[in-house]
């Protein structure tokens, strides 16, 4: 019984942790969208900034991956 409650808590926690991925999605979309609008304003400068774009996306995405990791840990490792 007690183990079941722990299990339930872990699964609920895993589901809650998945919300963090939505935040990462918003963040990545923000980065890419802002890059696109900037690139359309000044296309000549866009090519030099793709590296920065990918770094930004990577940083934003890493946090989503962390929440995914928390979910996995709760599911499988706790």
């Amino acid at each position: 019984m007690e183990g079941d409650i722990v299990q339930m808590g872990a699964y609920i926690g895993a589901g809650l942790a998945c919300m963090g991925m939505g935040g990462a999605a918003v963040g990545v979309g923000n980065v890419a969208g802002n890059f696109l609008s900037g690139a359309l304003r000044n296309p000549s400068a866009a090519a030099g900034q793709t590296a920065t774009l990918f770094i930004g996306i990577a940083f934003a995405e890493a946090l989503g991956i962390f929440s995914f990791l928390v979910a996995l840990l709760l599911m499988f490792a706790v």
Binding site: A58, F59, E61, A62, I65, F66, F68, L69, L72
Partner: peptide, 16 residues
């Protein structure tokens, strides 16, 4: 930490 988890997490997530 973020450097390694980003790569492993991405690969693991996609395959899972």
């Amino acid at each position: 930490v973020s450097h390694s988890i980003r790569l492993a997490g991405n690969m693991m997530a996609g395959h899972a």
